[in-house]
Design a protein around this nucleic acid. Sequence first.
DNA 1: GTTCGTGCAAATCCTTTGCAGCGAC
DNA 2: GTCGCTGCAAAGGATTTGCACGAAC
Lengths: 151, 151
Amino acid sequence: MKDPEQRFQELMQKLRSREYRLTPQRVALIRLLASSEGHPDAAELYRRLLEQFPTTSLATVYKTLNLLKEMGEVLEIEIDGIGGEGSRFDGNDPTPHPHLICVRCHRILDGQVSLTEEILQAVQGQSGYRVISHRLDFYGICPECQAQGAN
Amino acid sequence: MKDPEQRFQELMQKLRSREYRLTPQRVALIRLLASSEGHPDAAELYRRLLEQFPTTSLATVYKTLNLLKEMGEVLEIEIDGIGGEGSRFDGNDPTPHPHLICVRCHRILDGQVSLTEEILQAVQGQSGYRVISHRLDFYGICPECQAQGAN
DNA sequence: GTTCGTGCAAATCCTTTGCAGCGAC
DNA sequence: GTCGCTGCAAAGGATTTGCACGAAC
């Protein structure tokens, strides 16, 4: 995980250079995304933002999120098999990297492995696809949940 | 890809042994899912089902889909970064396997590679998670779309 | 005859959009 | 002063749910 403050500066710089307006709400949201503590979803970001800006709306959160996604600075993590949950986001490290998703408590941890070059080559060779990015997620039970319940 | 007829029999057998009712609509849907030609979404399955049962409803498609998902006999493939599309489904092979998703035409191809045992071990070791399943999807441009447009 | 599945409509949930007013620049 | 951003409310789209009728067993 990158240093949040450094990542924050990085994001600010990118927005400035593209001449986007740095409204206080936007800056606060970017600060949250720079650390992306716990891989928050839109509602969680909204909740944290409300503490500073009681009139902020969810729509604003989504708009900024979409802006950053288009810039490739935020990664969207969709959890499947787990109904009723929205996407989670990672603005700390937008490079494709694996996630470990606990099917019990929905905790998300960053994985440290990466796909080997052989695998990428094999996939491209077999299919003829030109691979642009990928997504690798593991579903399982986190240590805490293992400790709690048997099974 | 498994032989669709064989997979169909397999699915029928599993439903029978759990004493689910084999209504004509359900049987027809299972036949579609056994091949899962083109990794259809719910709307596509519904469309194909309508040809045989003009009064079928989307709700019924979803209900059967959920039943089979819970039984672990259908894999749900969620495409992200591509808005306005629902999940796609694979009832031919419910074992986790990679997919190649074309970001242009949304074609989905089954990948032939699988994660190495080392990667799985590494992930479990680093995180302490007990990994149950995983998901590996590649995003790129399929050969047809590469041929069409430059870039 | 029972119980489960179907099909309709309405409801849900996340996310997006339209628009008027405000604020960054 | 301009134009983009905000925030509200309403719309949108995929999926789910409630319920009464009909069909599988």
